[in-house]
């Protein structure tokens, strides 16, 4: 059977701070290499809700503060309900860098008013006044998603905001080396149903192909309503690149 999926990409022109496009490339290629047809739907101010409703996988990258300000009312007030419904329907999603802040309860910037989020994740984010205290560097963690439990995830983080998980919200990963959500509680990111939010910024998926495959698998399972096993791919370079970061951080794999 020939599968096909549509990947929605939130505001590529506004939410692409640093290599976010890498995630789209990886999802697209890993699907195509397995014979799965992929359509990329860039979501902009003018995208109709009916198109967003047909998305099988959703991705959001990082926005600069000003860009965030430009898009938040369109994202939250016009498209918020539709996006929340997708997540409730188990549509897999990945939000990296600054976008999880917008998907939480609120984001309080260092300067300016508190921005209300979409409330997909039960998470509060506060940006401390001192802009110089950004959390920057390579990071490695253990994934907490049941299907990928204790698999490693590596990447780079660079954020001013500190996020705090509320009630029983589950983290995406436990930090081994790096800062994570707030630099204190060793949590990194958050999950809700098949949605993943994390501070890993830019190209998370190239070095973490298992997460890419998790998203693709879930997208197909939800769309075709059956158990899916993806064909194995040669991930030699991916695992080498992942090990290189682990070595850099002094974490033996």
């Amino acid at each position: 059977m020939k599968y096909n999926i549509t990947i929605g990409w939130l505001y590529p022109e506004l939410m692409s701070t640093y290599g976010d496009r890498g995630n789209i490339l990886v999802l697209q290629k890993r699907a195509q290499w397995r014979g799965i047809e992929v359509k990329i739907l860039p979501i902009s101010f003018t995208t109709p809700l009916s198109s967003i409703n047909k998305i099988d996988l959703l991705f959001g990258g990082g926005a600069q503060d000003k860009e965030q300000e430009i898009l938040i009312s369109d994202l939250r007030d016009k498209k918020g309900t539709t996006i929340k419904n997708l997540i409730e329907k188990n549509i897999p999603s990945l939000f990296v860098c600054g976008s999880p802040q917008l998907m939480g309860n609120f984001y309080e910037p260092a300067v300016g008013k508190r921005i209300k989020g979409l409330g997909i994740f039960n998470v509060d984010t506060i940006h401390p006044e001192n802009e110089n205290h950004r959390l920057i560097g390579n990071i490695i963690g253990k994934i907490q998603i049941p299907e990928l439990k204790n698999e490693l995830v590596v990447g780079f983080e660079n954020h001013g905001g500190r996020s705090y998980l509320k009630d029983s919200t589950l983290p995406f990963a436990k930090v081994i080396k790096g800062f994570g959500n707030n630099g204190h509680d060793k949590t990194e990111g958050m999950i809700y149903k098949n949605a993943i939010g994390c501070y890993f910024h830019g190209p998370l998926l190239p070095k973490n192909p298992k997460i890419a495959d998790f998203l693709l698998k879930k997208a197909l399972e939800v769309k075709y309503n059956k158990k899916i096993t993806l064909d194995e791919l040669d991930d030699f370079l991916e695992s080498k690149a992942q090990k290189a970061i682990a070595n850099k951080l002094g974490t033996a794999l």
């Binding site: 976010d20 890498g22 910024h201 190239p206």
Partner: peptide, 29 residues
């Protein structure tokens, strides 16, 4: 220290080049 930017490059021109080598601290990236 952050090499994320390589994913913002346009490599479509590279398809016509027969011999490509990669090196550096982040060779696998």
């Amino acid at each position: 220290r952050d090499i994320s930017w390589i994913w913002d490059t346009d490599l479509s021109l590279l398809n016509t080049c027969p011999h490509i080598y990669v090196s550096g601290d982040r060779v696998y990236d």
